[in-house]
């Protein structure tokens, strides 16, 4: 019994060791976003609170926590309060199977890849419930848009993952990374280049980020599904959106960019030094690169029109993934790609 309790306690500590840095990362991601987009638009960005404006996220959090949470009179109270929690929980729970390095993984489960797919597809419930429970036109429109968009892009995202699964020969995320050993040209981004691009596009659509942010669409439907939320409840939606972006970035790093592996692994001289060793630092560096790309897209592209989003998802991305999944299978069967070389 004591063993079980100790095991539980140790697991809770490990969960905290993932969740607490994640929340801090979300806080600084918002700062990073404002600075990056600021410099892309030749502005300064936040610069007043603390040195270089570094304390700005904490000022924002404090402001949101001190604000009043307004419950609309005709809202469905229970679901209205439940919705932000439903958005947030999968965004955090998916980190359970993410391997940070060869040994650093909370749950090294065999079905890690579909577990992640299942959890990323659950977040949309929070959005739909928020839109419906708010009892507001704009919120409801945002929820409907989000539901249709998520279901459409989940298919191409799932097929992109099938390509990775065929290449890696396993559903275990740690083993998928190990199958990519051998340096930057052995990572799956090269043989699966179209799927890599499609995964990132679908990731944008799944997280409702620009240019696919029609669920929010502040110029058309005010703020979409979270228009009625204020204070801490709004902060939870915000937290979930950024946690999801970090999750998709981390997953892209694991599935297509070799996770914790070093890009110089098989380079003659460099590979024997410390730079050639895989470590969590490589994983974090790759994740930050993909996180930066999320911001880059936002500063670059205007919002898609809704029918064009649907056309892109169903008529462009899904056919490409279908073809490339078959090509990936051919590459594996004829030994054109060697796992873990």
């Amino acid at each position: 019994m004591l063993d079980t309790l100790l095991y539980l306690l140790w697991t809770v500590i490990k969960i905290m060791m993932i969740v607490v840095p994640l929340i801090i990362a979300v806080a600084f991601y918002t700062y990073f976003e404002r600075k990056v987009i600021g410099s892309m638009q030749i502005r300064v960005g936040p610069s007043r609170v603390g040195p270089l404006g570094l304390l700005q996220p904490f000022a924002d959090v404090l402001k949101l926590l001190l604000k009043e949470i307004i419950l609309p009179a005709n809202a469905n109270r229970f679901l209205f309060v439940l919705a932000p929690v439903i958005v947030l929980a999968p965004a955090f729970a998916a980190w359970a199977v993410v391997p940070f390095s060869d040994l650093l993984v909370l749950a090294d489960v065999d079905a890690g890849l579909i577990y992640v797919l299942a959890l990323t597809s659950l977040g949309v419930y929070g959005v739909i419930i928020a839109g419906w429970a708010s009892n507001s036109k704009y919120a409801f429109l945002g929820a409907m848009r989000s539901a249709a968009q998520t279901v459409s892009y989940e298919i191409s995202m799932g097929f992109a993952l099938v390509g990775v699964l065929i290449m890696g020969g396993t559903l275990n995320l740690r083993e998928i990374v190990l199958a990519q050993q051998g340096g930057i040209f052995d990572w799956f981004w090269l043989p699966l280049l179209p799927l890599f691009v499609i995964y990132m596009i679908s990731g944008l659509a799944e997280t409702n980020r620009a240019p696919f942010d029609v669920a929010e669409g502040e110029s058309e439907i005010v703020a979409g599904f979270h228009v009625e939320y204020s204070g801490a409840a709004f902060a939870v939606f915000f937290l979930a959106e950024y946690a999801n972006m970090i999750l998709i970035s981390g997953l892209t790093a694991i599935l297509f960019a070799g996770g914790w592996l070093s890009p110089f692994e098989s380079v003659p001289v460099l590979g024997d030094t410390v730079l050639g060793e895989g470590s969590i630092l490589w994983f974090l560096a790759k994740t930050v690169v993909f996180m930066f790309m999320f911001l880059w897209y936002r500063a670059t592209f205007p919002r898609y029109r809704y029918d064009q989003i649907m056309r892109l998802g169903w008529k462009v991305l899904i056919p490409i993934t279908l073809v490339w999944v078959m090509l990936a299978a051919i590459m594996v069967v004829f030994g054109l790609v060697v796992r873990g070389s």
């Binding site: 079905a111 579909i114 577990y115 797919l117 299942a118 597809s121 659950l122 949309v124 419930y125 739909i128 539901a147 998520t150 279901v151 989940e154 799932g158």
Partner: peptide, 13 residues
């Protein structure tokens, strides 16, 4: 997990 992906994640949405 497939039950969650297919039914909860897609059909029920």
């Amino acid at each position: 997990i497939v039950l969650v992906v297919v039914y909860v994640g897609a059909v029920m949405v």
